[in-house]
Computed example of a mutant assay.
Amino acid sequence: MSRNLPSLRSAAVAAGTLAVIAATASSSAPLLGNTAEAAAPRTLHVHYAPAAGRAPAPSPDEAVAKALKALPKAPGAYDVAVADLDSGDRAAYASGKGTFDTASIVKVDILATLLLQAQDDGGELSAAQQKLAAAMIRSSDNDATDALWADIGGGSGLAEANDRLGLTGTEPGDGGTWGLTQTTAADQLVLLEAVYGDGASPLSGDSRHYVEKLMASVVDDQRWGVSAAADDAGSAALKNGWLPRSATGLWDVNSIGRVEHRGHTLLIAVLSDGHPSYKEGIDAVENVTTTAANALRH
C-alpha cells in the first residue's frame, strides 16, 4: 500500500482538491504510528490547497488590441482588421476616428464593381477594360481608374455593388473623387473576403480569380504594407493607397491584401492618416500590420 501513496498524492495535486486516502496497515508494513497501533485500520488525511485557476486566453480582439496599444505613440490615426482563413479567428481595432479616405485601395472595389456588372450582363470585361484594370491594380494608374470609374457609373455604381458585397460603412467619393471614398478596415476586410474567402460571394469564381491574379502581380515598388507580415513578401497579394492632403500637408497611407503568415493565410486591412511623410506612413502601416498579425497568431 505504501508504494501506491506517491501516485495517489500526484493525482490529488493534479486535481487541486482535498484528497482523502484510506489505508489499512498491517504489523509488517506500518504506515503511521507505532507497531502496536498498526494493526487497527487507519485513515491518512492529506490536505492540498486548491490549484490556482488559469486565466482564460484572451479573445482575438483582446490580443490584437493589447499588442497595438503597447506600440509607441505615433502621429495620426489608424484602423486595422485581420482574419485568419485557416483558424477562423478575426479581430479589429480602431483608434476611434471613424472612416478614412481610401486613396487608391478603392481600386479593388472599383474592379469588383466592374466584374459584378459584367456578370449581370452575362459577359466578360472587354479587352480595353482588361487593359485598364491591369494598369489600375498593378501600377495604380489613375488615368485608367478615371476611365473605369466612369464605366461603372461613378459613386452610384460603386454604392450599388457595395450593397451586394456587404460593405456597410463605405461612402463613395463625390463626382470623380474616387480617392476620397470613405471606408473602414472592417469593410475592406469584407471586400477581401468576397475575393479570397471560402464563403458565398456575389463574385463568380472567374471574377475572384481575376482580382487575385492582378493583386498578386503589383509592381515591385508598391509591394509594401501588409506584405511586411508575409512569410515571403513576394507571395503577398495586395493593393496600397497613399494620398497627401493639401489642407494639412499630411499623408493618408493604406494597405489591404492577403499574406501567408506563420503557415496561415491572413487577410489584412490597415487604414491610416495624419502621417508627416509618405515614408513614415509606410513604416507605421507595416508596424501595425506585423503587430496585429503576430498577435492574432500568438
Rank of each mutant, 00 (worst) to 15 (best):
S207H: 00
V190A: 10
L18V: 13
D206R: 14
W251C: 02
G166A: 07
P75Q: 01
P72V: 05
A236C: 08
H298C: 11
E212C: 11
L238D: 00
S95G: 11
K131M: 09
T113R: 00
K66Y: 12
N4E: 15
A112D: 02
H209S: 15
L250W: 04
G76L: 02
D89I: 14
Y48E: 12
A65P: 06
R3G: 12
R54F: 11
S272F: 05
H47C: 11
S235M: 14
T17Q: 13
T181K: 01
L18Q: 14
A230V: 06
T35R: 14
A161G: 01
L85R: 14
A237Q: 09
A23I: 15
P6A: 06
Y278P: 00
L148W: 00
V82L: 10
E286C: 08
P58S: 11
A233G: 08
A295G: 09
T145M: 05
Y278G: 08
G96W: 06
A81Q: 07
S217N: 13
V211M: 01
G122H: 06
S235N: 14
T177C: 10
A228L: 06
S255K: 04
W224M: 04
S10M: 13
A65F: 02
A133P: 05
A127H: 08
T265Y: 08
H45M: 11
A284W: 02
P60G: 10
I152S: 06
L115M: 05
A36V: 15
T35L: 15
T170D: 03
V190K: 07
G155Y: 03
Y78Q: 07
A185W: 00
G176P: 12
S255H: 02
A112L: 05
A92I: 03
G173V: 04
W251H: 02
W242H: 01
D232E: 12
S7R: 11
A55K: 15
S7T: 13
D79N: 11
I137N: 02
I21K: 04
K279Q: 10
L18I: 11
S272Q: 04
L203C: 06
L71Y: 04
T184C: 12
A15L: 12
P30V: 14
P30E: 15
L116F: 05
P276D: 06
A57M: 13
P50C: 07
T17P: 09
A40N: 15
K66T: 14
N142D: 03
I282H: 00
K73W: 05
L158G: 01
A161P: 02
G98C: 05
Q130H: 07
A23L: 15
L266V: 08
D232V: 10
H298R: 15
E260F: 08
